[in-house]
């Protein structure tokens, strides 16, 4: 992929996935990797930062005799997500208006 992905976009993706449903580290990483070309080790620091910023909380659930740590979005995480989403839509429209403008005038 030739477009650089900023960390805000990564935050937005994580928050969006968790806004839909709680997820544990591994599945969350795989879900983000389906849409973004990041290395598998990129996600943990992001999750930790969002957790420290009170956007996410964690809880443990036993699974096959071991622990699964689930991430859940907090109310302030939700408002952060909405804020980022709004910014993204605005940004996307601006880029679209330039990029798509070239098609009709060939």
């Amino acid at each position: 992929m030739s477009f650089q992905l900023g960390s805000s976009l990564l935050d937005a993706c994580v928050l969006a996935i968790l806004a839909k449903e709680d997820a544990y580290g591994y599945s969350l990483t795989q879900q983000v990797r389906e849409v973004m070309d990041i290395s598998e080790s990129t996600l943990y620091p992001v999750l930790r930062r969002l957790q420290k910023g009170d956007y996410l909380t964690t809880y443990d659930q036993p699974f096959q005799g071991r622990n699964r740590r689930y991430y859940r979005i907090t109310p302030s995480g939700r408002s952060k997500y909405e804020e980022l989403l709004e910014e993204w839509i605005d940004y996307k429209q601006k880029i679209d208006s330039v990029l798509l403008g070239g098609i009709n005038h060939e």
């Binding site: 598998e40 080790s41 943990y44 620091p45 930790r48 420290k52 910023g53």
Partner: peptide
Amino acid sequence: AKLGSPALVSSQILAEYAVKG
């Protein structure tokens, strides 16, 4: 192989820790 070396993983954690807050 997918995570990369422990050095890479740890350096990402250190860098993120540094700028938080």
